[in-house]
Nucleic acid binder design. Structure first.
Lengths: 369, 369
DNA sequence: GATTGATATGCATTCGAATGCATATTCTCG
DNA sequence: CGAGAATATGCATTCGAATGCATATCAATC
């Protein structure tokens, strides 16, 4: 309210910040408003009866004192912290970034707050779970390519609802929201065949990644003959090398589906700069995730989009339901991917085959500063 | 410990998850171990005396019951939540991503946990601060290009230490850790002049962004004549347009410094595809942040690196000190940027001028899945 | 043997908000 | 007017761990 303005002397002590500053409590507000602490509590938690006048006095007193309810104390007594643990590994995977942003927003909209745990490669997840649980989180959302299938079970066993996002574990008692990777792979296969391609390549991510495996499986479902496969490890360099492997091998493909956009970009650069080919004419390339960079002129990459927003929203919705009623059956939901058409892959004459599944939309803008 | 294995029936109820599962408390542990609750508390908080035997019994009992101290209750009584609010806007700015990852790790290493608030453009920051404070965070780290200068003050006035990261506000009572943007801008100016360039362009970010302003100021410091300036808004498209503006204007530059890598990539694509020029030969381009994409073949962008790791670590260190002693003077620290040399800018004959400030290092890998 | 200090333990209280219960007041309607 | 519901308020207790204080035990020292 009335911070003293001081001149910019920066000697030894901070300008304001009265050391012993104590937060006002509901009792302080009650005293000032001339009511009981219960009344203050009821006013702020919107539970029980509070007369209009009392509420007015309480609000005024609260504002005057700068009172805000202590979420820790509230959580202790209600046994609801309104905290949700968000566990991600590999935050540098670009797709997880938008997930995180969307997730934070969706949680807030539902009155929750995100306790973030970004797992460094070195650390073991189980130790982190301990920390997560110590904060009495109401639920946990896990999203990570390197997620041990044990981690979600640990939470579930502690009675804390879990939803895995963009990632599924074998345990069917764990709720999950993910892109329908297999269906999307199938769609890409149909798309490339409709474009007249006949020799296919697939650039895979990591061996233990279900996303990559499922995309490949769907791709195979759709194809008349099996694709050549190379490992790209989900990196630009890996995609670059994998593309060279495929193109320099016997019977090089005329269409390549990459399990991620980053690898697709590496592949595009290999085709153009190392092999002198023109993507979209000599060879078609399709990626996955519709990363922001896919829309850049250099790449103009046809890609499957998995909406981070939609995934996040569903994950939070499902988690919120599970928190409401922990006995609810686990839900596993698979959102369809959509093909974003750009110039890196030849456009079939008649597409879509059935009227749905692809969009012309652009990727979200990406910035830095 | 002994979860019943059930067959995969997924009807209406979840397989395990005994509904009323209650977390064991320190009293339960005490009873089982045959000691007092105080002893259990002392054993887990490592405060006060606990005999080796007692500790052993307590540990055994705790393991048996699956006890973990309730962080909320602990925070309530100790008045230390070990939570740190991390406020970022614009999570999609790629540089903030690595900051977030590094930050989460650094906080954990210091025994803190990150309560994440990612501000959607629509929302006002002040409302969010209320939430942050309600959780009795021990401190706040703010990092955002769209950070109102009022927000840090709100926390400080509530007695909560704040450190702004990669961003500074005018108020000198707020601690900050940032790259020495002005010094880095100067370095880029010297570098480009040493490379024999004489007509300079600068692609700016946002008007109200101190990072962009400071980089420009340093750049001007170093130059004999003022650069032409265009606005790029920190986006790829913005950089693309800005580069065209500069190059198609009167007296086009032969060297362009961009306030961020994303804009630099837009600029590079404009030069190559729209104007048919060769970066590094016809025109030199330098970016800022050393984003992962800067190392990609397509761009091979010379850029200034600001280490997210170093920034994060210092921010957490400073914050931890402030939490220890809130009366400590605010610290404002500026870490030097380093030039990462690649082919997008012509290499001067004798560089570095003074032996320091540039590195050959590559950017970290980026992945997606 | 008496004194001191270090070690160990438990009791009771505390943190701040929520809530069951009892009670008081007002309103509604037969 | 009186019975009963709806509204309003406060008291006392509760959540779970930490800690000041009192006390107990033991070893070292004079």
């Amino acid at each position: 309210m009335s911070r003293k303005k001081e001149d910019g002397k920066e000697t030894a002590r901070a300008p304001s910040a009265k050391t012993g500053r104590k937060q006002p409590t509901s009792y302080d507000v009650a005293r000032l408003a001339g009511v009981s602490q219960s009344a203050v509590s009821r006013a702020f938690s919107n539970n029980g009866y509070v007369s209009p006048e009392a509420r007015k006095k309480i609000t005024a007193a609260a504002v005057q004192l700068g009172f805000r309810p202590n979420a820790l104390a509230r959580g202790l007594i209600t046994r609801r912290s309104r905290l949700v643990g968000v566990v991600v590994a590999d935050l540098y995977y670009s797709f997880y970034v938008s997930i995180l942003h969307q997730l934070s927003g969706a949680l807030r909209a539902s009155g929750f707050h995100a306790l973030l745990f970004s797992i460094p490669s070195s650390e073991n997840i189980d130790a982190m779970i301990t920390d997560v649980l110590a904060y009495q989180v109401d639920g946990v959302i896990m999203s990570s390519a390197r997620l041990s299938s044990r981690a979600p079970g640990l939470c579930r066993d502690a009675g804390v609802p879990v939803v895995t996002m963009n990632r599924i574990v074998d345990d069917s008692s764990i709720s999950a929201v993910a892109t329908d990777n297999r269906g999307a792979g199938r769609m890409v296969g149909e798309f490339l065949q409709a474009g007249g391609h006949r020799r296919f390549g697939f650039i895979a991510g990591l061996d233990d990644s279900s996303t990559s495996r499922d995309r490949e499986a769907g791709f195979r479902d759709a194809l008349a003959q099996a694709p050549a496969v190379a490992q790209g490890g989900f990196t630009y360099d890996g995609g670059h090398r994998a593309a060279l492997d495929l193109m320099l091998g016997a019977n090089p493909p005329d269409a390549i589906f990459c399990a991620s956009d980053i690898m697709a970009m590496g592949a595009l650069d290999a085709l153009r700069f190392d092999l002198g080919l023109t993507p979209g004419e000599d060879v078609s390339v399709v990626g996955f995730n519709n990363a922001a960079e896919a829309a850049w002129r250099t790449y103009d990459l046809t890609s499957v989009t998995a909406s981070a927003e939609e995934l996040s929203q569903r994950a939070v919705e499902i988690l919120a339901e599970l928190i409401e009623d922990p006995d609810l059956a686990p839900q596993r939901e698979f959102l369809p991917g959509q093909l974003v058409l750009r110039s890196s892959a030849r456009m079939p004459e008649n597409w879509p085959l059935d009227g749905g599944g692809n969009v012309a939309a652009a990727a979200g803008d990406i910035k830095d500063s």
